Computed example of a mutant assay.
Amino acid sequence: MTAALFLNGTVGSGKSATADAAGDLLAERGIPHAVIDLDALRRVWPAPAGDPFQTALELANLRDYAANATAAGASVLVLAGVIEEPSALPRYEDAVGGPVTLVRLRAEAGEVERRLRARHADDPEGLRWHLDRRGELEAVLDAAGLPGPTVPTGHRTPREVAEEALRAWDAV
């Protein structure tokens, strides 16, 4: 059975960078793994009708990717994405074929804004959308009552955050 660490959080919270760093740490420990940025698995335009955030597509692609990664020897999956409600967790567990542990990454609004401004320096429309989405998503995640620990990202390196997330996960 494959175990999965799901790094959950708003846009700009450090999910992708932390997932990459967690992959490096797992490799250093000799633990077979795959790092999966869920944004890449759902990137399609236009969004399917009735699925504005392409969640159904993400889950279908995750199912195939997880099966292929497991067949290739991965015993751990590190997922970077967003789960907004507890009822979604079983769908991700089904897709990866094992338990999923959520670890929420959280950064101060000012730090997220700094990161998003750097990321979208040449995309003012994208910057506006992501800044608005950050506040909206932060409120959704706060209200959701999702299980799992919260790890602050703040002004820490992705490796420091990944070390804490892996300790909080306690599955490896």
Rank of each mutant, 00 (worst) to 15 (best):
T2Q: 03
A4F: 07
N8P: 00
T10A: 10
G12C: 04
G14R: 04
A17T: 08
A17G: 09
G23R: 01
L26R: 05
G30N: 08
A34C: 13
V35L: 11
V35P: 04
R43L: 15
V44H: 06
A47K: 00
A49D: 15
G50C: 01
G50M: 02
D51F: 00
F53E: 15
N61I: 03
A66L: 05
A66S: 05
A67N: 03
T70K: 13
G73N: 01
V82H: 02
I83R: 07
E85M: 10
P86Y: 04
P90R: 08
R91T: 06
A95R: 10
G98Q: 00
L102H: 08
V103M: 08
L105E: 10
R106T: 09
E111A: 07
E111K: 02
V112W: 06
V112A: 10
V112D: 03
L116P: 02
R117K: 13
R117M: 07
R119G: 03
D123Q: 13
L127H: 10
W129V: 14
H130Y: 12
R133N: 06
A139M: 01
A139L: 07
V140N: 05
V140P: 05
P147E: 06
G154A: 15
H155Q: 14
R159G: 01
E160W: 01
E163R: 11
A165R: 08
A165Y: 09
A165P: 14
D170T: 12
D170V: 12
